[in-house]
Nucleic acid binder design. Structure first.
Lengths: 234, 234
DNA sequence: GCAAAAGTGTTCGGATTACACCCATGT
DNA sequence: ACATGGGTGTAATCCGAACACTTTTGC
């Protein structure tokens, strides 16, 4: 039997930066770590990769085990491998980020699991290098969302243009012109207007839109340029 | 002593997609693998991560061991972890890509090492998932170079605008308008004109430019938009 | 003189921006 | 009726793309 001799083996973990939007602000899904070291400290959704698993399968499994969430948008972010990132044993971690619609999962979560949504402006100190992962994930999302329609993953199936704009404004921490924003978004042809209106947040009410799934799949990798003055914002 | 029990440990490798430009076309640096399995098959520059090494240190060390190259531009590309990607043992790989100026290293290489430059249009079948890594690296470079000035790593210290344009055209496999290209590039203020001319490739001769190092560091992460019609090309 | 490649200028059109006005509705 | 937020329109501007002409020099 062939073998690679004298090579060091390492533990391989996956950590997921799960972000959500509740209609007002961006939130991060955290969990109280259930084992030593750092038990009861705040942590991203993480776990070890099993012997027969790919990274993405591991990420999906871990997310489901910890939160019950399945079938959500996951993307590999970066691999972290500093020798001292885990004090117990040499552990490398492949970080993923996920974007989800909070409203769809909020109740389900708080009852069954130890996971909790935390406002992005109030994220506590996390274990290991998880704060660094979060920082990089936020940067990557900003970067990517400027050109690609990934943020729709954060919204419910039906959403209004003002809601969409609030989301973009939360990500980029700036305000956009309402009229130019709607024109730009609608010009992508990604959205389909429905007959219904959201009467919650205004008297007039705002029309609900939904994604044109086909167009969305087509243009997922296209350049959209939704953000004004991207080089000033990012 | 604290330990994580019952967790699988894996071998961790680093593989480098090293690309270069010889003034005419893009090339990839390959090596004949020196050990089993797949001995004497073509491979990217790869090796195992040591117990006290970060990924980027490992990548730099491996590149130096195999080619003698030091201090070159390296960027993490993606982590690959399919259970069956290495038939011998469960091995995950963190891929990096590197961009270098071929002319600076060409002779040095061919004498001392087994590494070889291969035209990107004639890349042979590589071991494991290395062809996939190459594909992803090419895509990432296209993507990134459309907005960021990373391609200067592929050129000698002094270069002409026609050379720079040839490089961009090689990457994107399209031809650009000479006049618009030079205006765009010069408007970035990244280049400094020198007094010298390259008289090799034309009768009139083209002025050499060099990078403004300070501006380059400042604008390395800026959006430059050098490529016309990026959504059609990428 | 002429061919070949480099360098500079101009025009046109579409996209982006800034801004004003109208609409629907609950109070 | 009026305040509030949603929807639509328009003029000014900027930037990118297309294109023409001049310059240099080896042959």
């Amino acid at each position: 039997m062939l073998r690679y001799d004298d090579q060091v083996k390492m533990l391989v973990a996956v950590d997921c930066v799960v972000m959500g939007f509740d209609g007002q602000e961006l939130k991060l899904l955290l969990i109280k770590r259930g084992f030593e070291p750092e038990r009861n400290k705040w942590s991203l959704m993480g776990g070890f990769v099993r012997s027969d698993e790919s990274f993405s399968r591991a990420a999906n499994r871990i997310l489901e085990e910890l939160t019950g969430l399945t079938g959500i948008y996951l993307e590999q972010l970066h691999a972290y491998g500093n020798p001292d990132r885990d004090p117990v044993d040499r552990t490398i971690s492949v970080a993923y980020f996920a974007l989800i619609d909070i409203t769809q999962y909020e109740k389900q979560l708080s009852n069954t699991y130890d996971a909790e949504w935390v406002s992005l402006s109030k994220v506590p100190s996390l274990i290991f290098d998880h704060n660094r992962m979060l920082r990089q994930a936020r940067k990557e999302i900003k970067y990517k969302a400027a050109n690609h329609p990934i943020l729709f993953e954060l919204l419910p199936e039906k959403f209004t243009l003002p809601q969409l704009q609030m989301l973009y404004e939360a990500i980029y921490e700036v305000e956009f012109d309402r009229r130019n924003f709607s024109r730009k978004v609608l010009s992508t042809r990604l959205l389909v207007k429905t007959d219904e209106k959201d009467k919650e947040s205004s008297k007039k009410g705002a029309f609900y839109y939904r994604l044109d799934k086909e167009e969305y799949d087509n243009k997922f990798r296209a350049f959209l340029n939704i953000i004004p003055n991207p080089d000033k914002v990012i």
